[in-house]
Nucleic acid binder design. Structure first.
Length: 606
RNA sequence: CGGGACGUGGCUCAGCCUGGUAGAGCACUCGCUUGGGGUGCGAGGGGUCGGCAGUUCAAAUCUGCCCGUCCCGACCA
């Protein structure tokens, strides 16, 4: 029996000043967590209890498709050196040395270690497929931890890895995770959406994120309310309405125009009395692509051109270039590659590098040419546009892509905007953009790790092949955080029964009244023997204090044992709706049990 | 890593500009009181004012350096 009077549930009347989002404030006020350092938290009794319930659900569903391992959190350098990520992971990896001076790191993900196991043990296609998972603490030295448990430096992750002999097998493993994840998030009571996602610079053919819409989220999701299309903004596309071209002037050929002080898109549009959609904007980057033999970064100059009213999507650009990062060009670099100043950059007269391995990814570029010129698809077929002239205070008009300038690559490198047309054929929907929290991610890795680390099995023809992998993650704390974000009010929050630390709290309104105490004790025992997690609030506090605490800490049901007990009645309060109903003391245990079971069934009935 | 803010008892904050006894509310302890939405009264305990150095007769207060935390951006699951 859990008696509140004996437990450590340090509730706070006020939230710490540095808590911004609801989940952060309430996790602390409700005594779930306490901060130890930036992005480092102690999980107290209620918090740990809730996380344990989440973990139990994850484990139950994962056991249906895979096998649970437990890998170390402290890892030697070698596997990371083999995959190349010892270098490329950069500062996000916590690194340390042992007493002998050997390099170690704290695990931020476990592809390498899992691949080490596969390499050592798997020999035949007959041993495939394999799905291995673990529930483990991960460490990532986030540049900016924030929002309580939303972005932290130590967190619990369920990570799974699949090994298959071929693409069809990977499809199957991927789909099984898709189903498992949907079941897990549904059972946890989350209103989630599965979206197409970017698979990152490491490649991979398919990538899907599980998102919960909330203002506290850091990801932007574009979705179509008509057909259900949903994608991370890093990946989302749209169909653009055709742009009405402006009429050419004079002979229709590019013409230099003096445009003093027009360094911004808005200035240019106003000067020429055109829509920004008829202006070509230039964003100049230096992109990092790998390392030289000596370990120096290789930087590539890149000019990205797109419509004046569009924004560069750097994730798309990175993927296109096979680059690990981009940064804006410095002034002297602009001068070197464009021979012109910022605000007046344009594509005419540039010397683009050429792709030397067409059709391959990532692209390789010729030595000839000065920079990689990338233009967005939306410029294809356009004409008579305005762009910078690579000369201070001058623009050009009558510029037509293809006729007046060429490029290295043409691709979708822009971010969609709310209100643009859904990209699905025949769909008339308009995209909406919302913020969301990522609670899970599944994606097809391919053979990057098995290839580079030398994992090989024999296929049915006796030929050596590298198994292809999928990897699949769930952020345990983020499930709790997202659940709080989606269900809170001024007084606190309420969790789904499946992940709440307790299903029901029994509030003895006056602990000094021995009859009430006895009734509460008996009711708690009854509910407990009915299989429910019960918290008995037997503290010597005023009723108001107990009500406030009960509303705060996330427990979905409350039974008030008070003066109506004399008439054989108690009150059953449903936290989510703040509704109260009088129920016979003799029947309330059965009723609550029924409600709880119904809710669990509903959550499990996906 | 760039920009900004902050650091005073467990929490929320005042005091700092203009240097001179360290404060309030909440929380905590004890007593009484009250007993259905954070009761009321009284008496208490608790703070190297983030750290170090400097200026000064004297520093929470002024100066410098460092550390830490939060927010925006960059980055990232």
């Amino acid at each position: 029996m859990h008696r509140w009077s004996k437990l450590f549930i340090p509730t706070l009347r006020e939230a710490p000043a540095d808590a911004e989002v609801a989940s952060h404030k309430f996790l602390i006020r409700a005594g779930y967590i306490r901060q130890l350092g930036a992005g480092i938290y102690n999980y107290l009794f209620l918090g740990q209890r809730s996380l344990n319930k989440i973990i139990a659900i994850v484990r139950e569903e994962m056991d249906k498709i895979g096998q649970e391992f437990y890998l170390p959190a402290i890892l030697p350098k070698e596997p990371w050196a083999e995959s190349g990520r010892w270098t490329t992971m950069g500062d996000n990896m916590f690194r340390l040395k042992d007493r002998k001076g050997a390099d170690l790191c704290l695990g931020m993900t476990h592809e390498e270690v899992m691949t080490t196991i596969a390499r050592g043990e798997l020999r035949s296609y007959k041993q495939l497929p394999q799905i291995w998972y673990q529930i483990q603490t991960k460490f990532r030295d986030e540049p900016r931890p924030k929002a309580g448990l939303l972005r932290v430096r130590q967190f619990i992750m369920k990570d799974a890895y699949s090994f298959d002999i071929n693409e069809a097998g990977l499809d199957e493993s991927f789909n099984r995770h898709d189903v498992a994840y949907r079941t897990i998030f549904t059972r946890c009571g989350l209103k989630f959406v599965a979206v197409e996602a970017d698979s990152g610079a490491m490649g991979g053919s398919q990538s899907q994120e599980f998102m919960v819409y909330t203002d506290a989220g850091e990801d932007l999701i574009a979705s179509c309310p008509v057909c259900g299309y949903a994608a991370n903004l890093e990946k989302a596309t749209s169909r653009l309405d055709p742009v009405e071209e402006i009429e050419p002037t004079s002979d229709g050929n590019p013409e230099l125009v003096h445009t003093p002080g027009c360094a911004a898109i808005a200035d240019v549009a106003a000067f020429f009395k055109i829509s920004p959609a008829s202006d070509i904007k230039c964003v100049a980057y230096m992109a990092e692509r790998g390392f030289t033999g000596e370990g120096h970064e290789i930087w590539l100059p890149v000019a990205a051109f797109l419509r004046g009213d569009h924004q560069v999507n750097e994730t798309k650009l990175l993927g296109l270039l096979g680059a690990s990062q981009v940064r804006p060009m410095h002034l002297e670099e602009l001068e070197k590659y464009f021979h012109g100043p910022a605000g007046y950059l344009g594509p005419v007269g540039l010397k683009p590098k050429q792709v030397t391995n067409p059709g391959s990814s990532p692209p390789a570029f010729s030595e000839t040419g000065e920079l990689v010129v990338v233009i967005d698809r939306s410029l294809e077929g356009r004409k008579n546009m305005v762009c910078g002239a690579n000369k201070l205070d001058y623009h050009q008009r009558n510029v037509t892509p293809g006729r007046d300038f060429t490029w290295t690559l043409i691709a979708d490198i822009r971010s969609v905007n709310e209100g643009e047309n859904c990209p699905k054929d025949g769909c008339a929907g308009k995209l909406v953009v919302g913020t969301a929290v990522e609670v899970g991610h599944i994606f097809k890795l391919g053979d990057k790790y098995t290839q580079s680390m030398g994992a090989r099995v024999l296929d049915e023809n006796g030929k050596e092949v590298a198994p292809i992998m999928g990897c699949y993650g769930i952020g345990i704390e983020r499930i709790l955080t997202a659940a709080i974000e989606q269900s809170n009010d001024a007084n606190g929050f309420w969790l789904p029964v499946s992940i709440a630390p307790f299903s029901v709290v029994i509030t003895i309104t006056n602990s000094a009244d021995t009859a009430l105490r006895a009734a509460g004790e008996k009711l708690a025992a009854d509910l407990e023997s009915a299989g429910l997690d019960v918290l008995l609030d037997d503290r010597d506090e005023r009723a108001g204090v107990k009500f406030k605490d009960a509303d705060l800490v996330g427990i979905p049901y409350r039974i008030n044992v008070g003066k109506k007990v004399a008439a054989g009645q108690v009150e059953l309060v449903t936290r989510a709706t703040s509704t109260s109903e009088d129920v016979a003391l003799s029947e309330v245990a059965e009723l609550v049990k029924k409600r709880v079971q119904e809710e669990l069934l509903l959550e499990a009935s996906f």
